[in-house]
């Protein structure tokens, strides 16, 4: 089976050429998934932190629920978002279906529980440690949350990367709400699905190798940034 050798050859050729079409697809993938991570972080981090420090009836059930939602099937998220954004759906008038925005919404929905659940655990552990010290600093509730989020930034970064990994790799949600429209909503994963459907397995695998390389690059950049930040440690 020389498919693998062929796939690496294809991947290499793709990278060497890196033509406009591929550039467009890679850029859109990054744009959609990074924006989704940002949206999910802005919602998930404070929500997870709030869940970590507050006590109310039903909190345990909520924690279990959020944690379970980490396993949301992408295609289910895609369907829900499709039904909402469809012209027959309640958000139809926004005209967002088959746009990158729809893909961002779907991916953000998919990964917000991941980020919130991991943030909840991180912040809860941190809060046990910091609680009394923060009282002595005279912090109010919001200042506490912000302090905990900042102090947990290195662990939370891993939560964001987990979210990014899930977003950039999923195909089920974006293909339903994006429609895999050439030059508009075609990203790495939907291209791989299409090339698989065309039976161009080596090309599909080559694109997969590039996708992995992109994920590795993003992770490496974050870790490098983190290393610099830790060395400087003055933030």
């Amino acid at each position: 089976m020389h498919s693998f050798a062929e796939a690496f050859g294809q991947a290499f050729a793709l990278i060497v050429n890196f033509d406009a079409d591929l550039r467009e697809i890679v850029f859109l993938s990054l744009q959609v998934s990074l924006t989704a991570v940002l949206v999910a972080a802005i919602i998930g981090l404070p929500f997870g932190a709030l869940l970590a420090v507050s006590r109310f009836p039903g909190r345990g059930a909520l924690v279990v629920g959020i944690t379970a939602l980490m396993g949301l099937p992408p295609v289910v998220v895609g369907l829900v978002v499709y039904l909402l954004l469809s012209n027959a759906g309640v958000l139809g008038p926004l005209q967002l279906l088959y746009t990158p925005t729809a893909m961002i919404i779907a991916q953000a929905l998919l990964i917000t529980p991941i980020i919130a659940a991991l943030a909840r655990q991180t912040i809860e552990d941190l809060n046990d440690e910091y609680d009394q010290q923060m009282t002595l600093f005279g912090l109010n509730a919001i200042q506490r949350l912000v302090t905990l989020l900042w102090e947990g930034r290195f662990s939370l970064m891993t939560a964001l990367l987990a979210g990014f990994g899930r977003a950039i790799a999923e195909v089920g949600a974006v293909i339903v709400v994006g429609g895999n429209i050439n030059h508009v909503t075609r990203v790495m994963t939907t291209t791989i699905a299409l090339e698989t459907a065309k039976g161009n397995l080596a090309l599909a695998l080559g694109l997969g190798i590039i996708l992995v390389a992109i994920a590795v690059t993003v992770n490496a950049m974050v870790f490098a940034l983190r290393g610099t930040a830790e060395r400087a440690a003055y933030a």
Binding site: Q31, L34, T99, T101
Partner: peptide
């Protein structure tokens, strides 16, 4: 990013 993605559509 929302603006840029918005402009794309």
């Amino acid at each position: 990013s929302v603006l840029t993605s918005g402009s794309a559509l």
